[in-house]
Structures are given as C-alpha cells and as structure tokens.
C-alpha cells in the first residue's frame, strides 16, 4: 500500500446525507471479479443527471469528497471504496461514517476524515462559492485546509499509523501466527466445523419456470 502523509486536490461538495453504498455503487456493478476498473460505476445513478456535482467541469477532476453525515451506510461492499479510488478520490470528508465503510477505506488507503458537521458546512460554502478550489488534507497534522478555512479531523491512531507507513494488514497479523496456533489449540472440541460436511439427505430441487397465462403486474418488465 502507498504511504499517505498529505494530499492536495480539488474538493467536491456532495451536499447529501445518508449517502449509502448502493448510491456510491449500485449492485449491478458488483459482478466484476477484478479489483479495479470501477470508476464508471461511481454514483452511477446520479451521474446521468447533468446538474450532479461530478458532471460540472470545475469538480470533474476532484480528489477530496466532502459529504454530509452518515456516509457509506448500508451494504458492506468494498467496491464502494474501489469505485471512489478508481475515480481518483484520495480522501472522503464527512461528519459521520458508517463503520464498515470506514474500515474498508483504511484497508485500501482511502482516508475517511471525520470533521464536525459545522466544519463540513464551512467547506461546502467555500467549494460551492469558488468551484475548483483545492483542499489540502494533512494526515500528520490531522487538518483539512481549504482557502482560509482550516479544520481538524479525526481518524483513529492505528489507521493513521498504518496509512502513514503504508502497511498491509495480513502481513502484520501473520507476524503473530504462533499466537494464532496457540489459540487454536485451546478451542473447545465441540465448536462447529464445516468439514467434514454434514447435511440432510440430498433432495432434488425442482427448477421454477416462468409462469405462463397468469395476469402479471401491468408495469412488469418484459
């Protein structure tokens, strides 16, 4: 993972609360088996609207997203983080993040910077008054700077350290493989295992077929 200490880029004001992960990337885009190439899927439903913030030239090249409270709620899909990263975002600023989204961000090197809602309002004001204004996010100092607005942000110490060092979680954990093995030796024997597989006798599952001759909803898709 790349080390993250400071980033400067165009700020994008997303004046919405409860931006759930279905809005960040709709489920139809989750079928790919790769980890990259999701940039076109970001905010797919909103991108069709010419007035949407990312469709305005001044914000198109944005890399710091400033959103309302409860960003990243809903589905655990890490694709939401990949889509933001693939588009070019390095930082999301919000007054409150969903837990799973925050965790996913930290693992992928996307900084989820939590600031007070009144500070989000200040940032929105600058970014909307002067579209294209750059924002500097300093992870070392934990500040977001945008013109004359300088606000502090919160990020937990452990995530900050990992981001600044560019460390990979699995590698860190495997340094403690002996302790995992010791723990496994202490586990009770009755705890369940998936193998060898046990189940009820196999039974044939009949495939359902499209219903013919039944009156369906008039708005039904062909």
């Amino acid at each position: 993972m790349e080390k993250f200490t400071q980033h400067t880029g165009v700020g994008v004001p997303l004046r919405r609360s409860n931006v759930d992960t279905d809005q960040i990337i709709p489920a139809v885009y989750l079928k790919r088996v790769t980890r990259t190439g999701f940039e076109d899927a970001l905010f797919a439903a909103w991108r069709g609207d010419p007035s949407f913030v990312l469709n305005q030239d001044a914000y198109r090249s944005g890399s710091v997203l400033v959103a309302g409270p409860d960003f990243g709620t809903g589905s655990s899909r890490e694709h939401a983080v990949w889509a933001l990263k693939d588009y070019g975002f390095k930082v999301v600023v919000s007054s409150r993040f969903a837990d799973i989204f925050r965790g996913n961000s930290g693992k992928q090197g996307l900084l989820a910077a939590q600031v007070a809602q009144e500070d989000v309002e200040l940032l929105w004001k600058v970014l909307e008054t002067r579209p294209g204004t750059e924002v500097t996010v300093d992870l070392e100092a934990r500040t977001v700077t945008c013109d004359d607005v300088v606000v502090p942000f919160q990020v937990d110490d452990y995530t900050r350290w990992r981001l600044m060092e560019g460390l990979d979680d699995i590698g860190l954990t495997l340094q403690h493989a002996d302790e995992i093995t010791e723990f496994e030796a202490r586990r009770e024997s009755w705890r369940p295992a998936t193998l060898p597989a046990k189940h009820l006798p196999p039974v044939e599952v009949r495939p359902a077929r499209p219903v013919v001759g039944v009156e369906l909803g008039t708005t039904r898709r062909a």
Binding site: E78, I100, G103, N104, L172, T173, L174
Partner: peptide, 20 residues
C-alpha cells in the same frame, strides 16, 4: 458482523481479524 473484501482475504489467510 459484515466485513469488506480486504477483511474477507484477511480471515481466509489468518482466521483472525484486527478489530477496534
């Protein structure tokens, strides 16, 4: 609890998760 794909990989590899 639900986890993201990086954590899925972490559990597959280590059967553990670092959790706050």
């Amino acid at each position: 609890f639900g986890i993201g794909t990086s954590e899925v990989e972490h559990v597959l590899a280590t059967q553990t998760l670092p959790l706050a």
